[in-house]
Computed example of a mutant assay.
Amino acid sequence: MSNPSFRQATPVDALRCFQIETSAYEGDEAATLEKIATRIAQYPEGFLILEAEGQVIGFINGGCAHEVQMADEAFKELIGHDPAAPNVVIMSVVVDPAWQGQGHASRLMDEYVRRMRGLDKRSIHLMCKERHVALYQRLGYRYVRPSASDHGGMAWHEMLMTL
């Protein structure tokens, strides 16, 4: 495998990101193509692409808020997003299933954290399923609480990294 590389998303990435998102998330968890396109258009600095062998194999995207409300569904459409706000809220961390199990999610997260520090952000918030709590703890996140969100009909847990 060639060395994976990182870059900021562009509008032409929306369809491939949607394909990865729908292949990796269950049921109604996946963002729509429209939401992904909106996230790229409104906050490309917060949309990190991972490429290998000439193709997009994963991505992370998020938005920024002054006050973080993890159960706020409207924020997933970047309603209330302010690129100058100090707190990042990750919406998706996803790797194509064909590329999973190779450390790509950790590589993506490490690079994302590095870039958010470079933008002088103060914290990164995310929600994950119980099976991913330990992974995020290994990556430096602190467990906050079970989330009030029932996004996609699933149980979620809130995690926080102070930068």
Score class of each variant (00 low, 15 high):
155 A>Y: 04
105 A>K: 00
1 M>R: 12
15 L>V: 13
45 E>G: 10
89 V>M: 08
82 D>N: 15
109 M>H: 02
94 V>M: 10
158 E>A: 06
43 Y>F: 15
117 R>Q: 14
80 G>H: 04
66 H>Q: 14
115 R>D: 08
57 I>N: 01
82 D>Y: 06
6 F>N: 04
69 Q>Y: 09
132 H>R: 12
13 D>Q: 00
155 A>I: 13
16 R>Y: 02
136 Y>E: 03
26 E>F: 09
153 G>V: 07
44 P>A: 10
65 A>D: 03
39 R>N: 04
160 L>K: 11
125 H>Q: 11
123 S>D: 08
10 T>W: 07
83 P>T: 12
137 Q>N: 06
18 F>I: 06
17 C>M: 12
40 I>R: 00
100 Q>W: 02
161 M>G: 05
42 Q>T: 11
160 L>Q: 06
77 E>Q: 12
92 S>C: 04
143 Y>G: 06
122 R>G: 09
60 I>D: 00
84 A>Q: 14
132 H>W: 09
147 S>Q: 07
5 S>Y: 10
148 A>K: 11
136 Y>C: 04
91 M>K: 05
73 E>D: 14
132 H>C: 04
122 R>I: 04
37 A>N: 08
123 S>Q: 11
82 D>G: 09
53 E>W: 05
118 G>Q: 00
113 V>W: 01
76 K>H: 14
136 Y>P: 02
5 S>Q: 13
146 P>W: 03
4 P>V: 08
28 D>C: 05
66 H>S: 11
55 Q>M: 11
113 V>H: 02
32 T>K: 13
128 C>N: 05
160 L>H: 05
131 R>N: 14
16 R>K: 11
39 R>V: 00
27 G>R: 09
157 H>K: 07
41 A>Q: 14
85 A>I: 06
5 S>M: 11
6 F>T: 05
71 A>D: 13
119 L>C: 07
64 C>H: 12
103 G>S: 07
64 C>W: 06
135 L>A: 15
135 L>T: 13
32 T>W: 10
97 P>A: 11
95 V>R: 01
142 R>H: 13
19 Q>L: 12
119 L>E: 08
139 L>W: 06
160 L>C: 04
31 A>K: 02
130 E>Q: 15
109 M>L: 15
114 R>F: 05
104 H>S: 07
60 I>N: 02
9 A>Q: 00
122 R>M: 10
92 S>P: 01
107 R>Q: 15
2 S>N: 14
111 E>S: 11
76 K>M: 12
86 P>R: 02
33 L>Y: 14
119 L>A: 13
99 W>G: 02
95 V>T: 04
71 A>Y: 08
72 D>H: 02
66 H>Y: 11
106 S>M: 09
84 A>I: 09
162 T>A: 10
136 Y>H: 06
59 F>G: 03
159 M>C: 07
97 P>D: 10
92 S>F: 00
85 A>D: 03
31 A>D: 06
86 P>F: 02
61 N>K: 01
43 Y>E: 10
141 Y>K: 09
82 D>H: 14
103 G>P: 03
33 L>A: 10
115 R>V: 07
152 G>M: 10
58 G>M: 01
161 M>V: 05
64 C>Q: 10
17 C>F: 01
125 H>G: 06
80 G>C: 07
76 K>E: 06
